[in-house]
């Protein structure tokens, strides 16, 4: 099946399945840099004390709630953008119900460490655990 070069002159692409050095370089750079930045952000955020749940709607703070609750705390966030039901129990947070179409923040499950967040884009709701504001202290 391999007909060399007759058709390939047109596509200006190197022949065959072989990747060029630049291809391999791109692959390595993307993989290595993303792995490193995942590790890096995890190290930074792991040191933070996670003790507050911050709920934001449309970029503005809606409320702050203690992360460690003995009894389950249920927040009903009803705004002009939509409805989200947030549950906090003993260091764990989840969104248990919403009226937004994709329900991605419900499917995302439980968050429990500093800097983690649940995002509902259609309703412009962000639920996150405090900790990221201390980045400056680490960055110097």
């Amino acid at each position: 099946m391999k007909k060399p070069n007759a058709a390939q002159a047109d596509s200006a692409q190197p022949a065959g399945d072989a990747m060029t050095r630049l291809d391999k370089l791109i692959f390595c750079v993307l993989i290595v840099s993303s792995v490193l930045s995942i590790l890096f952000t995890n190290i930074i955020f792991a040191k933070k004390t996670a003790d507050e749940v911050i709920v934001e709607v449309n970029g503005e703070e809606y409320g702050r709630y203690p992360l460690y609750e003995k009894n389950v705390k249920i927040l009903d966030v009803k705004t002009e953008f939509g409805y989200n039901k947030i549950e906090i129990l003993n260091g764990k947070v989840r969104v248990s119900d919403t009226n937004c179409p994709d329900r991605l923040e419900v499917k995302s499950g439980i968050i429990d460490s500093a800097g983690e967040m649940l995002v509902c884009l259609p309703n412009r709701v962000v639920v996150r655990i405090s900790g990221e504001k201390d980045v400056d202290r680490v960055a110097y």
């Binding site: 200006a12 692409q13 190197p14 990747m19 060029t20 050095r21 630049l22 291809d23 791109i26 692959f27």
Partner: peptide, 8 residues
């Protein structure tokens, strides 16, 4: 042009 393939 000829240093990169469609994979890259």
């Amino acid at each position: 042009k000829d240093k990169i393939t469609m994979a890259g």
